[in-house]
C-alpha cells in the first residue's frame, strides 16, 4: 500500500467543479509535481487533503488510515505538513517561536504547566527548542532565529515556512507554489533544499508550482490539471510530449 492514497476525490463550489475525480498514490521519498493553469483546482486539492475543505466524494488515505473527514489539526498531527501559496507566517512571534508553534501541539505539558513552570515544562520546552534549531539549520535560518518574520526577505520567509512544516514531522509534505515571488538565485537554493529534505527525511512531497523548469527537474511524477480534471500523468518527459497537455496548457502559454 502506498504512503498516501488519494482516491477519486471531487469538490464543487456552487456548481463549479474545482476538483473532478482526482487520484494520486505517493510513496515515501517520491516527489509529485502538480501543474496546470490558474484556476485548475491545484490549491483546492491541497486544501482538501489537509482538511480545510471536505471532499464531496472520494477519500484520502494516509498509511492505511482514512483521513478524509478528520478535522484539520488531526490530519496535520497524523503526518501531513504544508506551506501556503501566499506566505502565512505568524506575525507577533519570532522565527524560532513560529517553528515552535508546530511542535507545541505535540509538546506534553498541561494547562497547569502553562501557568506554573514545572520541570516537565522545562524539559519539553528544551526538546522543542532543540528540534526547532535542527530544522532551522536544515533550511539555513538558524542564525536568524530571534528575528521577526516580517523583517525577512520573501525567500527567507518561505524557508521559515518550510522549517515550520518540517516541525510537524510530516510523512507527506505539501508545498504550494514555494517558488512564487523568489529571485532566480533563491529558486536555485529552494530546488536544492527540496531535493535535500526529500532525501534526508524520506517523506513524500507534493509540489504545486508554476515554474515548469523547477517541477520538471525534481519531480518523479507530474500530474497536469485543467479545469479541475486531470488531463495527464507521467514523468517529465511523457508529460512534455503529451498532446492534450501541449494543447491545454503549454500551448496556451506560447
Amino acid at each position: 500500500m502506498a504512503l498516501l492514497e488519494i482516491r477519486h476525490i471531487s469538490k464543487n463550489f456552487g456548481g463549479i467543479k474545482a476538483i473532478a475525480d482526482f487520484s494520486l498514490e505517493a510513496e515515501a521519498g517520491q516527489i509529485h509535481g502538480i501543474i496546470g493553469p490558474n484556476g485548475a483546482g491545484k490549491t483546492t486539492i491541497f486544501n482538501t487533503i489537509s482538511g480545510v475543505y471536505q471532499a464531496d466524494s472520494g477519500s484520502v488515505v494516509l498509511s492505511g488510515e482514512d483521513i478524509t473527514r478528520l478535522p484539520q489539526y488531526k490530519i496535520t498531527r497524523l503526518g501531513i505538513g504544508r506551506t501556503f501559496q501566499n506566505i502565512r507566517i505568524f506575525r507577533g512571534l519570532t522565527i524560532e517561536e513560529n517553528v515552535l508553534c508546530a511542535f507545541d501541539p505535540q509538546s506534553k505539558y498541561s494547562v497547569f504547566g502553562g501557568l506554573i513552570p514545572t520541570p516537565k515544562r522545562f524539559k519539553e520546552e528544551k526538546r522543542g527548542r532543540e528540534l526547532a534549531r535542527k530544522y532551522l539549520e536544515v533550511v539555513g535560518m538558524a542564525d536568524k532565529k530571534d528575528e521577526r518574520p516580517e523583517n525577512l526577505s520573501y525567500g527567507n520567509q518561505r524557508k521559515v515556512e518550510i522549517a515550520r512544516a518540517l516541525m510537524c514531522e510530516p510523512k507527506v509534505l505539501l508545498l504550494d507554489e514555494p517558488a512564487a515571488g523568489l529571485t532566480p538565485t533563491e529558486v536555485m537554493e529552494l530546488t536544492d533544499l527540496i531535493k535535500r529534505i526529500s532525501v534526508e527525511f524520506g517523506f513524500a512531497i507534493l509540489l504545486i508550482e508554476h515554474r515548469l523548469d523547477l517541477v520538471m527537474s525534481i519531480s518523479d511524477l507530474i500530474h497536469v490539471q485543467n479545469f479541475g480534471e486531470t488531463i495527464a500523468v507521467g514523468t517529465a518527459d511523457e508529460v512534455q510530449h503529451n498532446q492534450a497537455v501541449i494543447e491545454a496548457y503549454l500551448g496556451a502559454e506560447q
Binding site: 489537509s50 482538511g51 480545510v52 478535522p71 484539520q72 489539526y73 496535520t76 498531527r77 504544508r82 501556503f84 502565512r88 507566517i89 505568524f90 506575525r91 507577533g92 512571534l93 517561536e97 513560529n98 508553534c101 508546530a102 501541539p105 505535540q106 515550520r164 516541525m167 510537524c168
Partner: peptide
Amino acid sequence: IAIKSDELAAKAMG
C-alpha cells in the same frame, strides 16, 4: 498568538 495571527495556518500546524 498563532491563532490571533492566522487561524487557518494555526490549524494547519496541528
